[in-house]
Simulated scan of single mutants.
Amino acid sequence: MADDPNPTAGKPDDSTSEEPAEETSVKVDPDVGEEGEDYDAATGEDDAATGEDDAVEASDAKPRMSHVRLATILGVVLVLGLGGLVGWLGYQAYQAKQAEDLRNLFVQVGRQGALNLTTIDWESAEADVQRILDSATGTFYDDFQQRSQPFIEVVKQAQSKSEGEVTEAGLESESDNEGQVLVAVTVNTSNAGAPEQQPRAWRMRITVQKIDDEAKVSNVEFVP
Rank of each mutant, 00 (worst) to 15 (best):
S135E: 05
E214W: 02
N6C: 12
P30N: 09
A99Q: 14
P199I: 12
V129T: 09
W122D: 04
E123N: 12
H67P: 00
E165Y: 09
P30W: 04
S148D: 02
T24A: 15
T207P: 01
V181F: 07
I152D: 00
T119F: 04
V187P: 02
K216S: 04
P30G: 10
A99P: 00
V220D: 03
F140Q: 03
A61R: 12
K161D: 07
V68D: 08
A194N: 07
T119E: 05
D212G: 14
A41H: 10
M1L: 12
A136Y: 02
E178T: 13
D54N: 14
V166I: 07
G81M: 05
E214P: 03
T118C: 10
T16I: 11
R69M: 09
S135G: 09
I120A: 10
G33V: 01
V181N: 07
S15C: 06
D134L: 09
E34A: 14
E172M: 08
E34H: 08
I211W: 00
P7K: 15
V26E: 03
D212H: 09
A114P: 00
T50V: 06
E19M: 12
D53E: 13
D3W: 03
A71D: 01
T118H: 09
G81F: 05
D53V: 09
P30L: 08
N191P: 00
V183P: 02
A215V: 06
S25M: 05
A93W: 02
V217M: 14
T207I: 01
R111W: 02
M1N: 08
S160W: 02
L105E: 09
T207N: 07
D121W: 03
D121I: 06
L102P: 01
N219T: 08
E100G: 12
L117T: 01
V187R: 14
D31V: 07
D176S: 15
A93P: 00
F140H: 11
G33A: 13
Q209K: 15
D213E: 13
A192H: 10
V220Q: 05
Q130P: 00
A125P: 00
D3A: 14
R205L: 15
K11S: 06
A114T: 00
G179A: 11
G51W: 03
Q108K: 15
N6L: 10
V155A: 03
A194G: 06
V32I: 08
V107F: 01
K216G: 04
D53F: 09
E165N: 13
T50E: 12
V154N: 09
A49L: 09
E178A: 14
A93I: 01
K216H: 11
